[in-house]
Amino acid sequence: MARKILLLKYGLPGALALLFLSGAVYYLFIQPEPSSLTTLETVVQPQDAGPAGVSTGTVLLSLFYPAPSALPDEPLLLKEEKKPVRRFSQPERQAMEVLRELSRPSPSGIPSALPPEALPLHVFFLEERLAVVDYSRKIQENLPGGMDAERTALYAIVHTVTFNFPQISAVRLLVEGKEQETLAGHFGIEGNLQADLSLIQDYQNPAGNIRVETLPP
């Protein structure tokens, strides 16, 4: 009887205290740092330890590739594909990683809009929702040329960054740290580039990039 009383008197509060303590320890020391990538979905648990705070698993991200089924009179569109990418806790490092993946073929085998040698050198997230992406010169030297190739390369980058990082609404593209007038002679990149949904397959916007026969008076 006395054992029962002792158990009720000290055992229950003790168990509750233990539960509270373990919760506090988990919250303070064990819980992983919350990601700022609100749309990221962890699909695989940590695969390689690496230096502390670097790679913590794999995430499924949206990457953009030239859509193979564009109609003859439409500009080449982009197609979204999900791809597992190494996960990083720091958003800028994560952006570097997804842009590195963007230079490789899509999971369904679509060749990238970017040359395989075109790799990002730096990515900075600035205030006012701007990401600065600095590429190696190979992006200009090895781009196949032509308006369609240039535009798909540009917007593959812009959409891949803005779709995966909701805190970013525009991208400033640099080549080896310097602003360029264009990437390949057609489209201006001196300003901030925003996502253009009319260039994404299945996102066609009738007010956007469609053929124009006549103009309103």
């Binding site: 009179d73 057609h186 489209f187 053929r211 124009v212 026969e213």
Partner: peptide, 13 residues
Amino acid sequence: IHSVQSSPLLLLH
């Protein structure tokens, strides 16, 4: 049989 297209080409601006 192509049609005219509008495009945000920098030079034209």
